[in-house]
């Protein structure tokens, strides 16, 4: 059995290997002249600030490049896998945790976003939510094909949403699919959407666990994931992007919840996460896992001191 197919873009461009995230970040963080101009505008007093640019693009396929990027022969490195398993709390087996498949495949999605014809700025993108469907567990010796593209541009109160879709396939078909939803803050290509922006009411339940996340957890996750986004690395680099301290990587928190919820799901399952307030490091995160009678579990993480919601999600059998 494989995952049911979904619409793919008309053209597929093949890359000879998974691109380096470092190079993609470097590209993303090199300001283009338009951004410099916008930044200049941002430090002006409100009255002098030019009106927010609100481009209107009515055709989804014109706004997002109708192309998917594809890399064949992707495989996991056993040492890298072990380090990931150690950090996230997965058992040290040959199985690739669903979160590790994300780590291996996601640079291809980053390359989609870093392409010159991608309509939204890569720097400062906010991860809103993530969904992964797992058809079967991949193992360390396998090679697979990664295909990634962008889809579903839509308006949001604070900017524009976009889905990055990443598929991992074996010769039979798609066995793992991730949909990562990002928000390009302050870039309005599709209006403001109908999201009221009201924060979800949250009352902390009784916890089932506690994560003491040290100041270095962002760096540790960067080391095992290769994702060296400066907002996770240190207070100094995070400040440059408007965060008071380094923040935990969303996929670290989601994958750790997935590890904690083991072995409640079967072989085929979906794993979702919705991010609320970022985790400012260091922090003690309270976590509650609630098993479902039909298998799977829901999970939620919050600041154990303030009670503010950080993330919530579900693991459900497919």
């Amino acid at each position: 059995m494989t995952l049911p197919p979904i619409d793919r873009p008309g053209t597929v461009r093949e890359l000879d290997r998974v691109p380096s995230l470092m190079a993609l970040y470097a590209k993303a963080l090199t300001p283009d002249p338009a951004d410099v101009a916008r930044l200049g505008a941002r430090i002006l007093p409100d009255a002098l600030r030019p009106k927010q640019r609100t481009a209107t693009i009515d055709d989804r396929h014109r706004s997002l490049p109708d192309v998917a990027l594809k890399v064949r022969g992707v495989t996991a490195n056993p040492q890298g896998l072990r380090e990931y398993q150690n950090l996230l709390g997965f058992p040290r087996t040959e199985d690739l945790p669903a979160g590790y498949v994300h780590v291996l495949a996601f640079p291809v999605a980053m390359a989609v976003m870093a392409a010159p014809d991608f309509p939204l700025p890569l720097a400062g993108m906010v991860h809103l939510e993530n969904r992964v469907d797992v058809d079967r567990t991949l193992t360390v010796g396998e090679t697979f094909t990664v295909t990634a593209w962008a889809s579903n541009l839509s308006g949001h109160l604070k900017g524009t949403r976009v889905d990055l879709i990443v598929e991992v396939s074996d010769p039979e078909g798609v066995v793992w699919r991730g949909v990562s939803t990002y928000l390009a803050k302050g870039t309005y290509t599709h209006g403001r959407g109908n999201d009221t922006g009201a924060a979800r009411e949250f009352t902390p339940p009784l916890p089932t666990g506690s994560w003491s996340l040290g100041a270095g957890i962002g760096r540790e996750y960067a080391a095992v994931s290769g994702d060296r986004n400066p907002i996770h690395l240190s207070a100094l680099t995070a400040k440059a992007f408007g965060f008071p301290r380094a923040i935990a990587h969303g996929m670290y928190t989601a994958a750790r919840a997935l590890a904690d919820a083991r072995p409640l799901h079967g072989e085929r399952y979906s794993w979702t996460v919705e991010f609320a307030k970022p985790v400012l490091l260091p922090e003690k995160v309270a976590v509650a896992i609630t098993p479902h009678n039909a298998g799977g579990a829901s999970y939620v993480g919050w600041n154990s001191k303030t009670g503010k919601l950080h993330f919530s999600g579900e693991i459900s059998p497919l």
Binding site: L206, T208, D260, L264, A288, I289, T290, P291, A297
Partner: peptide, 12 residues
């Protein structure tokens, strides 16, 4: 005598 164990990990 009897021993038992419970699933406290998932809050059951």
């Amino acid at each position: 005598a009897q021993t038992a164990a419970v699933d406290y990990v998932h809050g059951r």
